[in-house]
Design a protein around this nucleic acid. Structure first.
Length: 250
DNA sequence: AAGAAACACAACCGCCTAACT
DNA sequence: AAGTTAGGCGGTTGTGTTTCT
């Protein structure tokens, strides 16, 4: 199960670096037939490569909208913040960086950024500034948005905590249930998918801003904006720091 | 100048899962 | 419902290039 049959080693397929000739064949084929159906491409395009290899080559190298190299400081910063939030979910991170591929970001992280971050972290921990030692990626789940204070954890359910987010915005995203008379509702979402795939750039930053305000103005004081989070520390850090930065930038 | 070490990145591997039969 | 396949993803490796000694 799983592995595509066409990719096994004993099929007389070419391996290693792609030649200019192979690239051209693949580009020509996709130009006329479009992406997808990777399994058919080698045969129909006359390439001695497996479908997966063709897909990878196209997505990471040949696609016309691809940027290569020269990752800017802004992009670098964004990668670091997103990585903090999402962990090694490279395709999601790449989804927020137009023209960048997951492979490129992964490589950049492994060779450059990862080290930088490590150095920064050790600096911080030496200075006793960083209190949060958790290194795992964060996933948000089950957030309840409400205009009034909520009872915090219900022991009978895994129901969560609350935050303040534009309801209309989230209605377009991953709201799953339970809108009541007060306009509160529960949702269960993966932060990565919420951020990366379902909303536009402007909505993304708007959402950021809304979270940001919620944290700063409401906190957990019981006011209209009430936040509590399963990975609160990480989220808070990311939101208050990261979102402000990007809002000011634009 | 030459060899070694470190770095950068393209490509491969194997796992997971959705879609299909 | 169960089995199969293809697509997608993250981890890892191989190799060419650059830097260091």
């Amino acid at each position: 199960m799983g592995k595509s049959p066409g990719c096994s080693k004993d099929q007389g397929l070419n391996r290693g670096a792609w030649t200019v000739f192979e690239d051209q064949k693949l580009k020509d084929y996709i130009k006329t037939h479009g992406e997808g159906k990777w399994g058919k491409i080698p045969k129909e395009a006359g390439l001695k490569r497996c479908g997966k290899s063709c897909r990878l080559r196209w997505l990471n190298y040949l696609r016309p909208d691809i940027k290569r190299g020269n990752i800017t400081l802004d992009e670098e910063d964004l990668i670091i913040r997103l990585h903090k939030l999402l962990g090694n979910r490279w395709s999601l991170i790449a989804g927020r960086l137009p023209g960048r591929t997951d492979n490129e970001i992964k490589n950049y992280w492994n060779t450059t950024l990862g080290k930088k971050v490590k150095v920064e972290k050790s600096k911080h921990s030496n200075n006793n500034i960083k209190k949060n030692t958790k290194t795992n990626p964060s996933k948000c789940s089950k957030v309840v948005v409400a205009p009034k204070p909520l009872e915090v954890e219900n022991p009978d359910t895994s129901d969560p905590p609350a935050t303040s987010v534009d309801r209309n915005l989230l209605n377009n995203v991953a709201v799953t249930s339970e809108e009541d008379d007060f306009g509160s509702f529960a949702m269960d979402f993966d932060m990565g998918e919420l951020l990366m795939s379902d909303i536009s750039d402007s909505e993304f930053w708007k959402l950021c801003h809304q979270f940001d305000n919620g944290i700063e103005e409401g906190g957990n004081s019981g006011g209209a904006k009430n936040l509590s989070f399963s990975e609160e520390t990480t989220l808070k850090e990311w939101m208050t720091d990261g979102c402000n930065y990007h809002h000011h930038r634009s």
